[in-house]
Design a protein around this nucleic acid. Structure first.
Lengths: 189, 189
DNA sequence: GTCTATAAAGCGATAGAC
DNA sequence: GTCTATCGCTTTATAGAC
């Protein structure tokens, strides 16, 4: 049987899925060892700080993923509209059409919001800011860009809540389309 | 010193706040006894089913509150636009301008979504459906009404996530205004 | 109804052998 | 690096006195 984890970075990927599924408090070391096939010895070797350090590593990985695939393109891609299209593609893929939850969003609603304040706040602030700058580059005025970017990030997070609640990934897909249309509309009211 | 709780219904109100603050998994009996000033004996007298039954009672109370203050007016109030105005007022007050979290939304993002599937699904389905019927009563066509109502519920939930993340209740207020405007716009594109 | 005492299990974390 | 054993603590839940 192949090992699931052979280095720390593999562990982080597995941990992300566990935390997403069970939440921070609901994730016990025993479910972690079960899902990662790593004993406590190895876990504490990789993450001396225990569960907190594991969650921090996961948040860091998530932050890096979004930075590479979403935020940086929003800032740097010369074609602003292409960057927005790409954002929605990546988001849809990442959240598996709404069947996967946003760990940062889930943390935001719980006590984890205080425990990991820096990472949670950073994730959302960056997202809104970079989308805003992209919209400005696309020719929107600043007020509208701010409004639209906030609205889009809010819409994605809210859609994840609703899609999971009523068990329809169609809700998520529909919402992404609506948000994209709103962002790309040339002559917005 | 006055007792915080003297009947089951008082306990439920206190429990709601505890679950909202600590989440389901993060809420231990010790924090419950601390916040409700009720010993384990009384707790298990009121809720023989333990924590699960407590959370169920809380969800029921939340459902009833929204039914009375939000859902029923959306269905029955002759003046559809007044019902929508009322919805936003009640929502803003209930969520304390975004400083308070939606327990049902938080449950939706975690394992509690399976454990309390009926209540979580019911809450959101009712909300979307009743808002939809209200919009139709206000003269919207069915497709648009469906889209707008989903968009509004999503927006509220997403705004709660974002407001808590970046610590600004202004985000929540701004979003409510934007959503209300969108719902009440006479000639929507 | 509310209390105290207590059970049984699970928790995060550590130690030390290998 | 990974294992097993174990620590000390907290957890949910129950029992029985009052």
């Amino acid at each position: 049987m192949p090992r699931v984890v052979s280095e720390r970075s593999d562990a982080v990927t597995a941990l992300a899925e566990v935390f997403r599924t069970h939440g921070f408090e609901g994730t016990s070391l025993s479910v972690i060892t079960a899902k990662t096939k790593l004993g406590k010895g190895s876990l504490y070797h990789f993450f001396p700080g225990g569960k907190d350090e594991m969650a921090e590593a996961v948040l860091e990985e998530i932050g890096r993923w979004f930075e590479d695939r979403v935020f940086k393109p929003l800032r740097d891609e010369p074609d602003a509209e292409a960057a927005i299209e790409k954002m929605f593609e990546e988001v849809d893929r990442y959240f598996r059409s709404g069947r996967r939850v946003c760990l940062v969003g889930a943390f935001a609603l719980g006590q984890e919001c205080d425990r990991f304040e820096r990472q949670v706040r950073g994730y959302f602030e960056t997202w809104v800011m970079d989308l805003e700058s992209c919209l400005i580059r696309a020719g929107r005025n600043e007020t509208l860009a701010r409004d639209l970017s906030e609205d889009a990030v809010i819409g994605i997070q809210g859609a994840l809540v609703l899609a999971r609640s009523i068990g329809q990934s169609a809700v998520f897909e529909r919402t992404l389309l609506r948000l994209k249309k709103r962002l790309l509309e040339r002559d917005h009211p």
